[in-house]
Amino acid sequence: MTTRQARVGALLLAAATSLSLAACGSETLNTGGGGATATGGSSATPTVKAVTADPALAALVPAKIKSAGVIKVGSDASYAPNEFTDTDGKTIVGMDVDLFSAVAKKLGVKAQFQNADFGSIILKVSGGQFDAGVSSFTINAERKKQVNMVQYFNAGTLWAVPKGNPKKIDPEQACGLKVGVQQGTVQVDDLTARSKKCTDAGKPAISQVVEVAQSKVTADLVSGKVDAMAADSPITNYAVAQTNDALEVVGKIYDSAPYGIVTAKADTQLAEAVSKAFASLKADGTYDEILAKWSNKDGGVTEFPVNP
């Protein structure tokens, strides 16, 4: 990932700078459960070709959603470039937003995004507050026990450090380091397991600095609060590209796994409709076009199964 629109990059850099100066101050990007909403499409990037409804797919949409005309979507808009707030501070944009907005159009409805803390989204989908969760959820066995997950992308874990790697950090030799990570992500489990290996070997534990928002994790690394950060590969690459050459990638991508769109466990009808809509977008080229727009084509998949 080498380029992004300058004004989006400036926003992320400004957020990181203000956070680093304020240390424990409030976050520039709103990640609360409040009213930040969008109906899709980033104003900061080229327009993806128009998507039209497919009557056969629209017929698969659950009656409640079809009647409302919208799919209510929970998303933690702090995870650029997958989902983040635009320069107005409230419109949710990003790769995932474009993808799922295209899915909704195929299904003859609109996607209505609402900002929410990452750790709350699955609970709110299960409780009916959201129809779907679209927030870079890695598919794993524990999550599939709680909800349905529709595969749509593939990513792995990738680390970043300050430019030049002054502490000569190696993710495989991380004992004793302070590592930033977003709350509720698979990287928390990864670091916990790595830390246990350290302590079992009589070495210092890895100290996790856990933040609610990924934007704050990135800011912690820019400010020097942590030695390194671990996040999904598209997010790490984007952070490096957008922090004015302050960071660099270290090590290689590992533990690659698919992302999944989340629906309630009982709502298999919506999950199947989303799966078929993705397959249609793949067939007509829209899916690959959106990934290319966000420089993430290498994470594309060819199948979109429910609960793979």
Rank of each mutant, 00 (worst) to 15 (best):
residue 163 K to L: 09
residue 190 D to N: 07
residue 140 N to A: 07
residue 136 S to I: 01
residue 139 I to Y: 06
residue 190 D to Q: 09
residue 105 K to Q: 12
residue 141 A to D: 15
residue 154 N to R: 01
residue 151 Q to I: 02
residue 100 F to K: 07
residue 153 F to T: 01
residue 202 G to T: 03
residue 181 V to N: 10
residue 164 G to C: 13
residue 99 L to P: 11
residue 164 G to T: 14
residue 141 A to G: 15
residue 194 R to A: 12
residue 182 Q to F: 13
residue 140 N to V: 12
residue 105 K to A: 15
residue 186 V to H: 04
residue 191 L to G: 04
residue 166 P to Y: 13
residue 214 Q to D: 14
residue 109 V to A: 12
residue 124 K to V: 06
residue 170 D to G: 03
residue 117 D to Y: 06
residue 115 N to I: 00
residue 100 F to W: 10
residue 180 G to I: 10
residue 171 P to H: 08
residue 118 F to Q: 03
residue 130 F to L: 01
residue 191 L to M: 10
residue 208 Q to E: 11
residue 129 Q to L: 04
residue 113 F to T: 03
residue 212 V to G: 03
residue 142 E to A: 12
residue 116 A to E: 14
residue 115 N to Y: 01
residue 193 A to H: 05
residue 157 T to P: 01
residue 195 S to P: 05
residue 178 K to M: 04
residue 190 D to F: 12
residue 106 K to N: 11
residue 112 Q to N: 06
residue 190 D to I: 14
residue 160 A to C: 07
residue 116 A to L: 00
residue 210 V to C: 02
residue 200 D to A: 11
residue 110 K to L: 08
residue 97 V to F: 09
residue 192 T to A: 14
residue 103 V to F: 11
residue 114 Q to C: 07
residue 161 V to Q: 07
residue 171 P to G: 08
residue 213 A to W: 03
residue 191 L to H: 06
residue 115 N to H: 01
residue 164 G to I: 14
residue 154 N to K: 02
residue 98 D to I: 03
residue 157 T to E: 15
residue 93 V to C: 08
residue 166 P to W: 11
residue 91 T to E: 06
residue 196 K to L: 12
residue 142 E to S: 12
residue 206 I to V: 11
residue 116 A to D: 15
residue 184 G to E: 15
residue 172 E to S: 09
residue 192 T to G: 04
residue 109 V to Q: 09
residue 203 K to L: 12
residue 140 N to Y: 11
residue 129 Q to Y: 04
residue 155 A to Y: 10
residue 156 G to M: 07
residue 131 D to V: 02
